[in-house]
Amino acid sequence: MNTKIKYILPLALIIFFVSVVGVNAQMENLRAEYDAKLASYDQVKTDYLKLKNLAVTDTQRIDGAKKVLVTSLDSVSAYMNMFKSKVDVINTESESSIGSLPDKYIQLTNLGKKVSEAKNLEELKKCLVDTKVFWQGVLDSCKYIQSRYMLFQTNESYTKLKLVADELDSFIDSEELTNTKNTFTASNTEFSNYYSQMIKKSEQELNSSYPDVQNSVTRYTKILGDTESSLVNVIQKASQ
């Protein structure tokens, strides 16, 4: 084995392991942050509904309503943060980037400003309507991001596994390997066509095919898993 590779490979593996652990930890932190914001929003909303039923002044209701809106926008922001890291991965590594989420952050800031400047309940009601529309938009964008992320990861897995299968094929002559590789290559071609077709779709188009994307990704992931198992079998036989 090349002397440089002998030292670089373990180092690369350590960096890969640390980065995987780091990314997972980051996602867990974002999820915990979102859960906390959501719990806080539910509490503020419940408090406001109690306040609404009591005979209270408009000032108290305005303050309460502002608190509800600010907390809901905080929760939306925490929700968007969970998908921001996925957008970053796609925009860094995929040939087709996503631009919708940064626009949403600008809208979020504007909405926050509008809420803090609202002087009466009527203005706050308008803010609530805008927040609902905005939230629906965020959900649509995140659904699109999720589809793109699943497709991107599946594509990455196909690329990596293809390299492994080719490497194995270069020095092992086995019928099982040939059959596995043929099935895998056919599936890879089919997925590549599907992938290039899907990433061209707009947010609205891809969201309308969301169940299809989910089913396809599940099916292709199963094929990847089966191929991996077959390759492990081939390796075990070759090691004996």
Partner: peptide
Amino acid sequence: VKSVKLNLSKYNNSNTRV
């Protein structure tokens, strides 16, 4: 064979969460 085993350990399809 060892080298391919290493590559397979890098490949992890469970990352694809549906």
